[in-house]
């Protein structure tokens, strides 16, 4: 437990130091030290609430999620680009409710984020108490109907759980 608490403090500071070094563009002792100092200062000044209790990061799942995400991005990006360029009437849209199975806030946030980042789907409203995302889908018929869109969102949730899900999530969904 003590290791976990230490990680919770150290990881953001190290992360901010890495960003600092990347911003300066060269790795030197002075840069690393000043980055750590700035990171500590920011961490001390802003006490952020701890999110994602029980989330466990799995490298394999994260890489798979990233790969799928890049592929999905290319595929749906091309489709939306075509919908914008093709002649004819505008596409038919829908707002669907997707009931997620997870109870973890972090999983829900990441699923909503990924869904909003993909062209063709956009989260317009989130109801946290019922773990429901309301997703606006562009061009439903080209995406294979409402059920397909809903299933895509749930598949995305499953991939997010494989990457960063809690033990409860994994028991329930996988």
């Amino acid at each position: 437990m003590r290791v976990v608490t230490a990680m919770r403090v150290v990881a953001p500071v190290v992360g901010m130091a890495v960003i600092w070094i990347l911003l300066w563009g060269n790795l030197s002792v002075a840069n690393a030290l000043s980055g750590l100092a700035v990171g500590l200062l920011v961490a001390a000044l802003s006490r952020l609430p701890h999110v994602g209790a029980g989330a466990r990061i799995r490298i394999g799942g994260c890489l798979r999620l990233l790969g799928w995400f890049a592929l999905d991005m290319a595929r749906s990006g091309t489709r939306v680009a075509w919908q914008a360029l093709r002649p004819g009437p505008p596409p038919v849209n829908a707002v669907i409710a997707v009931a997620l199975r997870t109870h973890s806030d972090l999983t829900m946030v990441f699923t909503a984020l990924a869904l909003s980042a993909l062209p063709g789907s956009l989260v317009v409203e989130v109801r946290r108490s019922r773990q429901t995302l309301y997703v606006h889908v562009l061009g439903v018929d080209e995406q294979g109907g409402l059920d397909k869109a809903r299933q895509d969102a749930l598949d995305l949730e499953k991939r997010v759980i494989r990457a960063i899900g809690t033990a409860d999530d994994r028991r329930e969904v996988l």
Binding site: A84, P90, L122
Partner: peptide, 25 residues
Amino acid sequence: TAGVGLLRFPDTLARLHTGAKPQVI
């Protein structure tokens, strides 16, 4: 395509799809 979709799509929500995403790609 972001620009074209922005101009052609009929409502704000549809415009958001082309406005906010293909430009990221």
